[in-house]
């Protein structure tokens, strides 16, 4: 614990302070634009933008507070986010009456277990869901005795657990990494991932609104454009490179890592959007005003976190 408090160092405070500064500027800009624009459609866009900014304050506050508590804070936060994300996912996916017990254990055994294992730093967190839940789910479903669409149902539950719990848990798993050269354990890697990833989402949105012409995936995600994608990825990568001082990376490596995070984040957004379109909904939930549900906000982190974790562990970790 003392080690942790020692780790709340100036760099972390600078990073959080920087985020708060950007938010403050965005808030003021939003209020000014609101006064300037006249057309109803532009008013609608700016109202939504201001709602999003207001939600960002809440999200940043919660995230910063849990970081300050220590690894337990982040594990509990991401555990709750996983639970809520899984709930949004399962609500959207057709299940049958016979899946009830399987789903119960999915929520109340495997989800907490994944984060508990991370908490005790047992490397078994890597296999519990891909192997044991993978076998447990069809076994309990077979016992329940309903064969209709058996494989589809089992696959959908397993997929949700992989996405909402397993992949998401790799973000706080960064706190368990032992980095060479006396860098960690430290919250800054997690903060770096989240800043670059979320900034990339925001900048893709901003560039898309400003310059967006050519749709990148009209069927899956009608609002994504090439202009938004390229502008967002490049500018988020540039900012990520500029944040090298809070990581064990050189500026060039920080840029490469940021590029990796933004590209995977983009893939995550597309995949989770494809599921929404298939189910005929616009958002996964209504929990975060202006943004939608937890999955609408976390889709990019879910895809970026495991790969970022593995790359960092391979090149910088004490294996």
């Amino acid at each position: 614990m003392t080690q942790w408090f020692a780790a709340i160092n100036p760099q972390l405070l600078w990073a959080v302070g920087g985020v708060l500064g950007v938010l403050a500027v965005a808030t003021i800009a939003g209020l000014v634009i609101k006064l300037v624009v006249k057309t109803p459609s532009a008013q609608g866009t700016i109202d939504n933008l201001n709602k999003r900014i207001r939600s960002w304050w809440v999200m940043v506050a919660i995230f910063a507070l849990t970081l300050a508590v220590g690894p337990i804070g982040s594990l509990v936060l991401f555990g709750i986010l996983s639970f809520l994300a899984l709930r949004e996912y399962i609500t959207l996916v057709p299940t049958r009456r016979a899946d009830h017990h399987t789903l119960f254990w999915t929520f109340f055994l495997f989800t907490p277990l994944q984060y508990f294992l991370l908490g005790i730093k047992w490397s078994g967190f890597v296999i519990v869901i891909p192997v044991y839940a993978f076998l447990f789910i069809p076994a309990t479903m077979a016992l329940a005795g309903d064969i209709q669409d058996f494989l589809e149902r089992a696959a959908k539950i397993q997929w949700g657990l992989m996405i909402c719990v397993y992949c998401m848990s790799y973000a706080p798993a960064l706190l368990t990494l032992d980095i060479r050269g006396g860098y960690g354990p430290d919250a800054k890697l997690l903060l770096f991932l989240v800043i670059v990833d979320q900034l990339s989402d925001v900048l893709q949105y901003v560039w898309g609104k400003l310059l967006g012409r050519h749709k990148i995936a009209p069927v899956v995600s009608p609002n994504k454009t090439w202009e938004g994608f390229i502008g967002g990825v490049l500018s988020a990568t540039a900012v990520g490179a500029g944040l090298w001082w809070m990581t064990p990376f050189t500026p060039a490596v920080a840029a490469a890592m940021s590029l990796l995070i933004t590209l995977l984040g983009f893939a995550g957004g597309l995949v989770m959007s494809a599921i929404k379109r298939d189910r005929g909904v616009k958002d996964y939930g209504t929990l975060i005003e202006g943004h939608g549900g937890i999955l609408d906000r976390m889709d990019s982190v879910i895809f970026a976190a495991p790969v970022f974790f593995h790359v960092v562990r391979f090149f910088y970790g004490i294996l």
């Binding site: 709930r87 949004e88 399962i90 009830h100 929520f107």
Partner: peptide, 12 residues
């Protein structure tokens, strides 16, 4: 919480 169950699953 379907008929005949007492453990809830947290759907929305």
């Amino acid at each position: 919480l379907p008929k005949g169950e007492f453990l809830p699953v947290p759907f929305i």
